[in-house]
Design a protein around this nucleic acid. Structure first.
Ligand SMILES: [Mn+2]
Ligand SMILES: [Mn+2]
Ligand SMILES: [Zn+2]
Ligand SMILES: [Zn+2]
Lengths: 130, 130
DNA sequence: CAATACATTAGAATCATTCTAAACTGATAT
DNA sequence: ATATCAGTTTAGAATGATTCTAATGTATTG
């Protein structure tokens, strides 16, 4: 992402100092899975102290513009995923880490959804032992 | 479940008044997905006021004895499942409801897990639209 | 450089869940 | 049966992730 400010403006987001820093980190070309807390820690490492309130606001703003996906995997925190394509995950509970599965996986044997309900998306989560 | 007290004893759980009431409700032969809150509401309907602390304790006790499965689907609450067989789910976010998929589903195209990691289990969650 | 709409922030509030510690009860031994 | 005691229940406090509030700061536009 060369011009983050332009990128934010394209997505109807004012390029504030904090959003530029966060977007630069998140959209550096390497897909990431972050929580508010892990993002806060990364920002502190790079000497950018941004309040937790702003981190939450920004993650949700980016999510609302479709720049992040929200993953509900763990009942104790929300993960945001910079890979917005439909994909699946390996999940290590021990490491509290997600790994993208970009392979084209197929699920067979799926029964019909209940009456009046439509399938929105199918999510495969592969739990790892260690 | 005819003899709940015996069932609880078999699972090294003292058949206290509260556990008997909760076990009678949960293990009546109809599989259920409950949260502490939905269970509390059901118990109130049947005039059994059991403290939330006990409800949480009991759900975790049953979970530890393998009588319930824990489902981490939603970052805002924990679901407990009386169906302890390996199975998948339809999930309606709108209704906050889970529906068992007992069909024998297959996932193909799964890549190898990362080095030194073993696959524990594969969970398929089918999100419903409405 | 205003004016103003939008963004940031510290701190309070919220809410599911867990913890604490005191009162209670089921199991066991006399 | 009764006493004993480990295990259980409970109210209420504590915790921790997230959201809210409302005061202050800033990007944008003219
Ligand atoms: Mn993620
Ligand atoms: Mn719950
Ligand atoms: Zn991902
Ligand atoms: Zn189920």
């Amino acid at each position: 992402m060369k011009d983050i400010k332009h990128f934010l403006r394209q997505n109807s987001l004012r390029p504030t100092k904090q959003r530029v820093i966060i977007a630069n980190y998140l959209f550096d070309g390497v897909n990431k899975h972050v929580t508010a807390e892990t993002l806060s820690n990364e920002l502190l490492k790079m000497k950018a102290g941004i309040s937790l309130a702003t981190i939450y606001n920004t993650l949700h703003d980016f999510y609302e513009k479709g720049l992040l996906k929200k993953l509900m995997i763990n009942s104790e925190r929300i993960y945001f995923d910079t890979n917005t394509e439909h994909h699946h995950h390996f999940y290590s509970k021990k490491d509290q880490k997600l790994i993208d599965i970009n392979a084209d996986m197929k699920v067979s044997g799926l029964p019909k959804p209940p009456k009046n309900k439509k399938i929105n998306k199918i999510e495969v989560l592969v739990h790892l032992d260690n």
